[in-house]
Simulated scan of single mutants.
Amino acid sequence: MQFRKTSAALAAVLTLSLAATACGNGGDKGANGDKITIGIKFDQPGMGLKTADGKYTGFDVDVATYIAKELGYKPDQIEWKQAPSAERENLIKNGDVKFVVATYTINDKRKAVVDFAGPYFLAHQDLLVRADDNSITKASDLNNKKLCSVTGSTSAQNVKEKLAPQADLQTFGGYSECLTGLENKAVDALTTDDSILAGYAAQKEHQGKFKLAGLKLSDEPYGVGLKKGDKELRDKINAALEKMKSDGSWDKFVKANLGPANYKNEPAPAITEK
């Protein structure tokens, strides 16, 4: 009898331990009803946006949902967590998310802290101008013109310091303020990644008002950020990305989210993070 009681107690402890393990680390198993937590942007139309009615839309959201499906999770098992640029590494390191898909450029500084799968998209820094403005066709045309970006933007500083030192840089708290300024001619151009610019230009209220200059001022390979050393997860995500490209889903996601801006995207990039 004592042996049976001990065995039952050990079984109970083991069950609780396994349950606790499954709940931690952003969610692990999709088949048994667990959740997976994924970091995305909430404020980037076309890429990662939480809408007023609580839905999540954008290319990054579609990519993340596809990856989750390949890992065994249905859409209703995904918990979306806001991943502002400055918080992405912390969210990954602390285990608050399983992975991050949030216009997350792969670079050496970030790779010292987290690992990446992908890249799954190649963006470039570009300019957004009014649709009827043909005066800006190269970066140097911004000299003596008003260039807008968000406060703390490295994109704007890149233009100001290297490409158009005479540009009149105007900074605001958000891209929507830059778009308003661009529309009413208070500023002449807005700069950040072309994918983000295309997302804004593709919004219904903006369609036909703006165009991308198509200048490719930098290369921005977007990767899926995950915990350092988790090679098993990275391999699974890379396999999902390859499948997403081969079955046509990648093209479908780009067209649905960025197509209305007449965005000329690069082909799906080769995976380099292995």
Score class of each variant (00 low, 15 high):
residue 1 M to D: 13
residue 2 Q to L: 12
residue 2 Q to H: 09
residue 6 T to K: 09
residue 7 S to G: 14
residue 10 L to D: 04
residue 13 V to E: 06
residue 15 T to L: 15
residue 16 L to M: 13
residue 16 L to E: 07
residue 16 L to K: 05
residue 20 A to L: 15
residue 21 T to L: 15
residue 22 A to P: 00
residue 24 G to E: 09
residue 28 D to T: 14
residue 28 D to H: 13
residue 29 K to I: 15
residue 30 G to S: 07
residue 32 N to D: 14
residue 34 D to Q: 15
residue 43 D to E: 11
residue 44 Q to I: 15
residue 47 M to K: 14
residue 51 T to L: 10
residue 52 A to H: 02
residue 53 D to Q: 00
residue 54 G to W: 04
residue 55 K to F: 03
residue 65 T to Y: 00
residue 66 Y to M: 04
residue 67 I to H: 00
residue 67 I to S: 00
residue 68 A to Q: 09
residue 74 K to Y: 06
residue 75 P to I: 07
residue 76 D to K: 12
residue 78 I to K: 02
residue 80 W to I: 04
residue 84 P to M: 06
residue 87 E to M: 13
residue 88 R to A: 09
residue 90 N to K: 10
residue 95 G to K: 12
residue 98 K to R: 15
residue 100 V to H: 03
residue 106 I to T: 08
residue 113 V to Y: 03
residue 115 D to E: 12
residue 117 A to Y: 03
residue 118 G to T: 04
residue 121 F to A: 11
residue 124 H to Y: 10
residue 127 L to E: 00
residue 129 V to R: 07
residue 132 D to A: 14
residue 132 D to L: 11
residue 135 S to K: 04
residue 137 T to M: 14
residue 137 T to Y: 02
residue 137 T to C: 02
residue 141 D to Q: 02
residue 142 L to G: 02
residue 147 L to R: 09
residue 148 C to M: 08
residue 155 S to Y: 15
residue 156 A to R: 07
residue 159 V to T: 11
residue 160 K to N: 09
residue 163 L to W: 07
residue 163 L to A: 08
residue 165 P to G: 10
residue 166 Q to W: 02
residue 170 Q to K: 15
residue 173 G to K: 05
residue 183 E to G: 12
residue 185 K to H: 12
residue 187 V to T: 14
residue 188 D to C: 10
residue 188 D to H: 08
residue 192 T to W: 01
residue 193 D to C: 02
residue 194 D to H: 11
residue 194 D to W: 10
residue 194 D to F: 10
residue 195 S to Y: 08
residue 197 L to I: 05
residue 199 G to T: 03
residue 201 A to T: 05
residue 201 A to N: 06
residue 202 A to P: 09
residue 202 A to N: 07
residue 205 E to F: 02
residue 207 Q to W: 07
residue 208 G to I: 04
residue 208 G to L: 13
residue 209 K to W: 06
residue 210 F to M: 12
residue 213 A to R: 05
residue 214 G to N: 01
residue 215 L to P: 08
residue 217 L to K: 06
residue 218 S to A: 15
residue 219 D to C: 06
residue 219 D to F: 09
residue 220 E to N: 14
residue 221 P to D: 09
residue 222 Y to Q: 09
residue 225 G to P: 10
residue 226 L to R: 12
residue 226 L to N: 12
residue 227 K to N: 11
residue 235 D to T: 14
residue 237 I to V: 15
residue 237 I to D: 06
residue 242 E to Y: 07
residue 243 K to N: 13
residue 244 M to C: 01
residue 245 K to V: 11
residue 245 K to W: 12
residue 246 S to K: 15
residue 246 S to C: 03
residue 247 D to P: 10
residue 248 G to H: 06
residue 248 G to R: 08
residue 249 S to M: 04
residue 250 W to Q: 02
residue 252 K to V: 02
residue 253 F to Y: 15
residue 254 V to C: 00
residue 255 K to Y: 03
residue 256 A to V: 00
residue 256 A to S: 04
residue 259 G to C: 00
residue 259 G to F: 00
residue 263 Y to V: 09
residue 264 K to W: 03
residue 266 E to Q: 11
residue 266 E to S: 10
residue 267 P to V: 07
residue 267 P to D: 05
residue 271 I to T: 03
residue 271 I to P: 01
residue 271 I to N: 02
